[in-house]
Every structure is written in structure tokens, then in C-alpha cells.
């Protein structure tokens, strides 16, 4: 009996405390989005909480598009303040965002390299974008028609590329590619900077245009990935790609530069167009496959949520996002135009 009274009392207290607390103002910045940006956001949030007297921002993953969707839900304490994103917001997304009364401000804080890595004990690879198009395309455009892709080894891929006039040998190893799933921002970059570029490099694209195919269809054909199991979409994050490489040592996986740099004991990196990916080669633009990392700040929340603008300024300060800062130590490629971003954010004050 007393047990029952006690529990009833406890529920009452819970309810009261709930109502009491709900009247309070939110004092922390809330961030959600890309799993690629997540480690960087964590590092900055931890440092921000330690360095300043503001509460440590709440950072959550969920993926780029989920983060942007949450940001664009509307204005108010119940919505997040910052969406991390490894891909850019589309025009339609921005429109729907504005329709909900949200003005997203894009803040770029650095670049991320996309690297191709294989098991450290296997042979090394030197890729050209065309190799990836030939290896992974669902269909090849040969002699005026689309022919299903039946290649099974990288050596065959290199032969086809040589026939197209692109030199370079690849090891005689089965094609087992682990590429990011379509839910990743990374995939977009992979599609455009690797598959599409490779398609153009080999002249497939021009051949299709010349054969009277319209541009959109040609692009789609270039980026369509084979579905016979040679290429596996990884919906999870890079740890899952690594686990797949562990079980399939003949595979080649797509990783972020920082992930590779923190796992050099398990992975060896392939060159792309003759350039080894590194912070330096990416920052000067030599390494072809990189993408900007950014977050979107909700303008309406600046000045309303305490510490929001300070957090943004802290994030893109030279000590954090600049060369030699904790983010570049972790694997971020610093943005050469960071000063411009800083000026843009300073103007928001």
C-alpha cells in the first residue's frame, strides 16, 4: 500500500518537475547532422565547453540530410540551431527552409578528402577516375550502345582504360568495392568527382552526347552503379567499411582522409591521378576528390540562444579550424579562405 502511495507521489513529482523545467529557457546550442562532421563538431563542442563559460553544445549525428531537415522544421526552442552537413543544401531545400521561416547561413570550415584504401597487406593501387567508372558502371557505352558491365578484376579494368588511352596498371585482383551509401553526403562527391569525371575522362560521356543522348540521361548512365554485388553500398559509417575490408581483404573501400590517417596500421591508400591524398595535396587542390565541409546556422536563433554565435566564431577561429589546430590534427583539411568565412560570421554580430 505504502509502495503504491510512494509511486503515485513519485509520478506527481515527476510531472511537477517536468512542468517547472519546461518554463526554463534553453541554455545550450543544439547541433545535429552529418556523421562525417560529427567528430569535428564533437572536438569543437568539447573545447568550447571547456574554454568558455557557456554550456557544452549538444551534438548529435543522424546524417547530413536529416540534420538539414531538422534545421528547416521551423524556428523556436524546440528546433536545432546548427545542421552539420557534408554536402551542400539544394535550392529546393533552401526554399522549403525559407518557407518555414528559417534562414540557413552556410558556414564552410574546411575540406575533407575522399580516399580509396585497401588492406595493408594487399597490393597497392594507383587509380584514375576512369578506372572507377569502368569498374563500377552498371553499363558501358560501347559502339553506340549500352553494354552491361561484366568485368571482374581490376587488371581487366586497367586494360580497358589503356584501350581508351589512359595508361596505368592495376593488380590482378577481384573487384570488390565498398562505397558510401546514397544516404551519405560522401556519395554525392564520389558520384560527381569520380564516376562522372571518369566517364568523361574515358570519352564515354562525349560519345553518348554524340550519339544523341541528352545530357541528363548521359550523366545518369555515367553514375549508375552496377548491382551484381561487385559494388556494395555501405549505409553505416567508415568503421563499417573497415569491417567489410577485414572480411574481404581483396576489397577496396572509400574512406574519409581523417579516418584513413587514424587507421594507417590497417589501410594503405591508393593514389588518384598520381597524387597521394594528404592534407597538403588536398589543400592546394592537387588531389582531385575532396569536398567542402560546412554547417548551416539558423539566423533566427542568433542572439536568442545563448552562445550560438560565440560557438560559430569559436568553430571557425584560426586556433580551432586553422592549420595546426585540433581539427587539422584530426584530419581536417584547413580552408585557405577561412578568413573570408570569419569575416562573414563577424558581420552577423
Amino acid at each position: 500500500m505504502s509502495h503504491l502511495k510512494l509511486s503515485t507521489a513519485a509520478i506527481a513529482v515527476l510531472a511537477v518537475s517536468a512542468v517547472a523545467a519546461s518554463a526554463q529557457m534553453r541554455t545550450n546550442v543544439q547541433v545535429a547532422g552529418s556523421s562525417t562532421v560529427l567528430p569535428y563538431a564533437n572536438i569543437v563542442a568539447e573545447a568550447f565547453g571547456a574554454e568558455t563559460d557557456f554550456a557544452t553544445p549538444v551534438v548529435e549525428g543522424g546524417g547530413s540530410s536529416t540534420g538539414r531537415r531538422m534545421l528547416c522544421e521551423g524556428v523556436g526552442e524546440g528546433t536545432i540551431d546548427i545542421a552539420n552537413s557534408s554536402s551542400l543544401m539544394s535550392a529546393t531545400e533552401r526554399e522549403s527552409c525559407m518557407a518555414a521561416g528559417v534562414t540557413p547561413i552556410e558556414v564552410r570550415f574546411g575540406y575533407d578528402g575522399i580516399v580509396f584504401a585497401s588492406d595493408i597487406n594487399g597490393p597497392s593501387f594507383a587509380f584514375e577516375p576512369i578506372h572507377w567508372h569502368i569498374a563500377l558502371a552498371a553499363e558501358h557505352f560501347i559502339d553506340g550502345a549500352l553494354v552491361p558491365n561484366t568485368l571482374t578484376s581490376w587488371a581487366e579494368v586497367a586494360e580497358v582504360a589503356q584501350a581508351m588511352g589512359v595508361a596505368g596498371d592495376l593488380p590482378d585482383q577481384e573487384i570488390n568495392a565498398f562505397i558510401p551509401g546514397t544516404n551519405h553526403g560522401t556519395r554525392e562527391v564520389f558520384d560527381e568527382r569520380v564516376l562522372l569525371d571518369g566517364c568523361e575522362q574515358g570519352g564515354f560521356f562525349d560519345a553518348m552526347i554524340a550519339a544523341g543522348v541528352d545530357e541528363d540521361t548521359a550523366e545518369e548512365a555515367c553514375m549508375a552503379v552496377r548491382t551484381d554485388g561487385r559494388s556494395v553500398d555501405i549505409e553505416g559509417d567508415y568503421t563499417q567499411t573497415l569491417a567489410n575490408l577485414d572480411s574481404t581483404p581483396t576489397g577496396v573501400g572509400v574512406f574519409g582522409l581523417s579516418f584513413y590517417e587514424n587507421n594507417t596500421d590497417r589501410l594503405q591508400v591508393a593514389t588518384m591521378s598520381g597524387v597521394t591524398p594528404s592534407t597538403e595535396t588536398i589543400s592546394v587542390g592537387e588531389y582531385p576528390v575532396s569536398r567542402p565541409l560546412q554547417f548551416y546556422v539558423k539566423q533566427e536563433h542568433i542572439g536568442v540562444i545563448p552562445g550560438l554565435l560565440e560557438f560559430v566564431e569559436f568553430f571557425i577561429s584560426d586556433e580551432i579550424a586553422g592549420p595546426g589546430g585540433p581539427l587539422s590534427e584530426y584530419g581536417l583539411v584547413p580552408d585557405p579562405a577561412l578568413a573570408e568565412t570569419q569575416a562573414m560570421v563577424a558581420a552577423l554580430r
Binding site: V13, L14, S17, A18, A20, A21, S22, N28, Q30, L38, A41, N42, A45, E46, G49, A55, T56, P57, V58, V59, E60, G61
Partner: peptide, 21 residues
């Protein structure tokens, strides 16, 4: 509840600990 930062040790459940991150 899968946040990676911003959660601290919670205060007592009777003083709002249940409503903290």
C-alpha cells in the same frame, strides 16, 4: 538520446534531472 556531447552528470531526479540532456 544518442548525443555525443552536451550530456553531463544529471542532477537529482526531483530537481529536474529527468529533464536534462
Amino acid at each position: 538520446l544518442s548525443v555525443s556531447t552536451g550530456a553531463a552528470l544529471l542532477s537529482s531526479p526531483f530537481s529536474g534531472g529527468l529533464l536534462e540532456q
